[in-house]
Design a protein around this nucleic acid. Sequence first.
DNA 1: TGCATCAACTTGTTCCTACAAGTTGAGCAG
DNA 2: CTGCTCAACTTGTAGGAACAAGTTGATGCA
Lengths: 255, 255
Amino acid sequence: MSKQPKYRQVADALRREIVNGAFDSHRRLPSESELSARFDASRNTVRSGLALLVSEGLITSSQGLGYEVRSHEVFELNASRFENLEFPQNGDAYNTDVTNAGRRPHQSFRVEMLPAPADIAERLKIEEGSTTALRFCHRYVDDVPWSTQATYYPAWLIEERPRLAEPKDIEEGTTRYLAASGIEQVGYFDEIATRMPTPEEARLLEVGAGVPVLLWTRTGYSADRPIRCTITTFRGDLNRMNYEIGDLSARSETT
Amino acid sequence: MSKQPKYRQVADALRREIVNGAFDSHRRLPSESELSARFDASRNTVRSGLALLVSEGLITSSQGLGYEVRSHEVFELNASRFENLEFPQNGDAYNTDVTNAGRRPHQSFRVEMLPAPADIAERLKIEEGSTTALRFCHRYVDDVPWSTQATYYPAWLIEERPRLAEPKDIEEGTTRYLAASGIEQVGYFDEIATRMPTPEEARLLEVGAGVPVLLWTRTGYSADRPIRCTITTFRGDLNRMNYEIGDLSARSETT
DNA sequence: TGCATCAACTTGTTCCTACAAGTTGAGCAG
DNA sequence: CTGCTCAACTTGTAGGAACAAGTTGATGCA
């Protein structure tokens, strides 16, 4: 009658109940032993089924507490408005967006001088191994880890704009700082990818198993040459990226 | 000495060897019993460690064959060039891009008339439950499942452009078909998200555990109103999306 | 009342066994 | 030589047991 292995039947039954909302948002699931009795399966088998749901990102488990349904409240990032000088903002884009959403931003900075990795060198059109300044930024929203951001600047730019090498926030935003001193970012090339987090990323972003990360690589260009490359790693469960392209006057109209 | 549980030590050791390239691209890993002897751990413990690497997307397993390192050969999609009338193409964007990359495209179509789901209705600015035409497309590259695409057209558009309701490819591309008959897409709003696949998606895209999907939702607008909404589901391990924004004349120059 | 302790829960880790099921290559029958 | 069978590998599924470790609330002592 059922060709599916038992642990899958367990997972399928629980998944159906979860998506139908049988378990309140942050109430707990029945314990492993209860499920074991209900499905007439060993604890190991039930655990296999639960592990499947964890890896799908549907539930989380905590030792001593049990399993609970994960809630997703996504945060939208408008990538095409970022770094657009015409769009009014107070401070940098991250602070602006988070504050506008009624959340509380927090970030920690770190600056390193290091030789350019191959992929960065290629994007910045510089020699692999030549010096770059890496501004690394770990961002939180309401004290929940949100993203890590690594921006590489080529050496020639640092010499002209030494504030980029200081390990602190640039209040007006780096784009404006550069523009105000004559280096204008006139275009950018974005690459978006997804994968499962490395153990290091999982630690920094405090994500468990089953949550992919969104990788956003932006290479900014002046009229002459590449001026910086930013790699942002987002928690995939909490973020969505938007692009507005072309004439969208029909979008804002009320129907 | 080592506070980490043994199955994590196994996973960490193997991960290190994999990223250092100790195992050839598609050669197999040692079998579970070999690893069990090497790490002085039970087969179950070794399996837990291997399961971790599978969920990270590093390796795959096949019954009877063993474990092997997964290769990533990503396919780049230029999202900002899609549906741009100025950019010359033969046929639709998918066929063009895949053929240009020297790969062989294949796709199967299906058309359904169905009531609009809530999220689609909101994006198309129509009543929830009102009729829409869904053009569903399952795409392959070199016979590997690549993406599924669901495009919803509002009823008013189908009445004017009945070819959209026919279950076959429109050779010149839907964008050009619409433009040639007076409905021009002048802008679009893109949303990009990632998550683990549902069992249905995992089946269609033939992805195992540990591979997230990339969700791309594009709402196209004419000068007056939304004209369609496309939801594309990509295999995250095989695809990357690009956006070119602003003046990128500095990008194409040779250094 | 306030606080510490502990029993009773939870999941986490590790081992064991047994058998099912997919793959491959050796070897034998024709 | 061809083609089939089968033994010997591989991973997959299912059960068992025992103990570690985190959490919670009840109990009882000061």
